[in-house]
Amino acid sequence: MNTTFSQGLKAGSSIAIGYFPVALTFGLLAKTTGLSIIEATAMSLFVYAGAAQYMALSLLATGVAPWLIVTNTFIVNIRHFLMTAALSEKVEPAPRWKKAIYAFGITDETFSVLATQKNRQITTAFAFGVALIAYSSWVIFTAVGHVIGANLPQFLQQAMSVALYAMFIGLLVPSMKGNRKVVLLAAIAAAIHCALYYTHLLSTGWSILVATLMSAIFVEILYVKSTKNVERFTEQKEVN
């Protein structure tokens, strides 16, 4: 059972590895965009959102108005409403201020690690451990990327770009085994997201949200209906 702070650190260590190349590249790009080390590291320290930070850099470089960058950040991060709502069902009761603190550490990656835990409840200490190691990696390697300003060797840089996705797969597959509902949920969400992505119907921030929600609702209705049918069937049998 994963319950303690140090078990959280351990469970979060694959996120720390995955963040390493992404944060390093962010630091480097921030430097080439003209941000000082303080400005670049402060963004990782206070905002802490990979996709939104990258987007901010490219928008800053093209001279987009700051309020538009803020609006964009919100849209990219809207999906976290869904994730933290889902998480609220799984975390142990704790004072609001504690939840408000580790809520800051909820990213796609920390959410995935927390939400796929087999425990019935996620302890606050475990959540803090996962959040802290991921956050530290993100902030520290942003600064390092800005300082050393050099990339990893090309082949390693390329290979490491798979890290976070490999982690998502490593988290998903154990739950898929012998559970058709999980397979269905992931497959339908992936299919909808692909459809939205290739038709350019929605921006990435919205499309992940829409794909996730559609899949989760559709599968839930499917399963509620089938259990009702089973119930009706058994009721009829009993009547007969």
Binding site: R79, L82, M83, A85, A86, S88, E89, D108, F111, S112, A115, T116, S161, V162, Y165, F168, I169, L171, L172, S175, M176, K181, V182, L185, A186, A187, I188, A189, A190, A191, I192, H193, C194, Y197, Y198, S207, I208, A211, T212, L213, S215, A216, I217, V219, E220, Y223, V224
Partner: peptide, 25 residues
């Protein structure tokens, strides 16, 4: 029904996070 949908979110999110992004790294 709401908490059922919320319990489905993690697995749906993972599907949407992996595809199609991993294809285009």
């Amino acid at each position: 029904i709401v908490s059922g949908v919320l319990r489905n979110i993690p697995f749906a999110v993972l599907g949407a996070l992996i595809f199609p992004a991993i294809i285009h790294i």
